[in-house]
């Protein structure tokens, strides 16, 4: 809308523009534009498809793989990838494809928890620091500095030492370990918005501080923080799979991606697919998520 208005104002003497422009895009035009957008970015399309597949695997695994991930035919053990078993079978004859698909649920669940913890805790800390300022800001940011000084893996491991093992605990540990980045981005966004005219206006008409925070600051600060959340999603998948590879995640029969690789490790010499396939699943998911995060980041910059 504003674009059209602007164009008319800036080029009034150009007769061609005045004739061609003022017409809303039809549905077909919109579709063509969307198609062109997609064709120009094959990587992004591929990434979106991968993420959709992973989501299906997480929420409705039987759509992609109908078998039971924990039941195998021992006679068929350690079969290489082929016709009967797309990605081969493991040392108990369980289908690797089925286990990777079903493993998505556990891995994704943990990732969502980790990102949620980081987003909520980091977001609240950053919001507080940026909105209240003063000694609260000073104290919170020093805590953030410390969290940044300790490598995330070691911080997660310290938390696991205290909390114990299990998928959810690992997820919380990874989430807490990545609070610092969220707090920093949220704080800088809040600081930026705090000084804007609309917040000043809201203050001037006597809006309560929490309403200002909720109605004006939060929605406007959300963009970059959400981009960071998507990026963090990929990092969290990697961190969680590392920790479950080390053996702190779900107990053995569960087909979590990291522990699948840990299981396959003993058969590395003869049966490469046991390690390779879950790893490719992790790598493909992380790559796709990162690609989407980069696209969103670009969108946000352009929108601003």
């Amino acid at each position: 809308m504003t674009e059209l208005l602007l164009r008319e104002v800036t080029t009034p003497e150009d007769p061609g523009a005045a004739v061609a422009v003022p017409r809303a895009a039809t549905r077909r035009e919109k579709a063509t534009r969307a198609l062109r957008f997609a064709v120009r970015r094959p990587g992004l399309v591929l990434a979106s498809i991968t993420v959709i597949l992973v989501l299906i695997a997480a929420f409705a695994p039987s759509v992609l793989a109908s078998g039971d991930p924990n039941v195998g035919v021992v006679a068929d053990k350690l079969r290489p990838p082929g016709a009967g078993h797309l990605l081969g079978t493991d040392y108990l004859g369980r289908d690797v494809y089925t286990r990777v698909v079903h493993g998505a649920a556990l891995s994704l669940q943990a990732t969502v928890i980790a990102v949620a913890v980081a987003l909520v805790v980091g977001g609240v800390l950053g919001l507080l620091a940026g909105f209240v300022r003063g000694w609260v800001d000073e104290a919170l940011m020093r805590v953030v500095d410390v969290l940044l000084a300790i490598p995330a893996v070691l911080l997660s491991l310290a938390l696991i030492t205290a909390l114990g093992y299990g998928t959810v605990k690992v997820a919380i540990a990874v989430g807490i370990a990545s609070v610092a980045n969220f707090a920093r981005v949220m704080r800088s966004e809040t600081l930026r918005i705090r000084t804007s005219t609309y917040v000043e206006a809201a203050r001037a008409v006597g809006t309560r501080w929490y309403v200002t925070l909720w109605r004006h600051v939060l929605p406007n600060a959300a963009g970059p923080v959400l981009v960071l959340a998507v990026l963090e999603f990929g990092l969290a998948i990697l961190a969680i799979s590392s920790l479950s590879f080390l053996g702190y995640g779900a107990p053995p029969p569960a087909p979590e991606w990291g522990s699948l690789i840990a299981e396959g490790r003993n058969y590395l010499a003869g049966s490469w697919w046991l390690c390779a396939m879950p790893g490719i699943a992790i790598a493909a998911t992380v790559l796709s998520v990162n690609r989407i995060s980069r696209a969103l980041d670009g969108e946000w910059r352009r929108a601003r």
Binding site: L238, S242, I261, A269, W272, I282, V286
Partner: peptide, 15 residues
């Protein structure tokens, strides 16, 4: 390179 799980890269190199 940063999208690959480090432990998996190690195992694949060993393989």
């Amino acid at each position: 390179a940063v999208s690959l799980p480090v432990f998996w890269v190690g195992l694949m190199l060993v393989q």
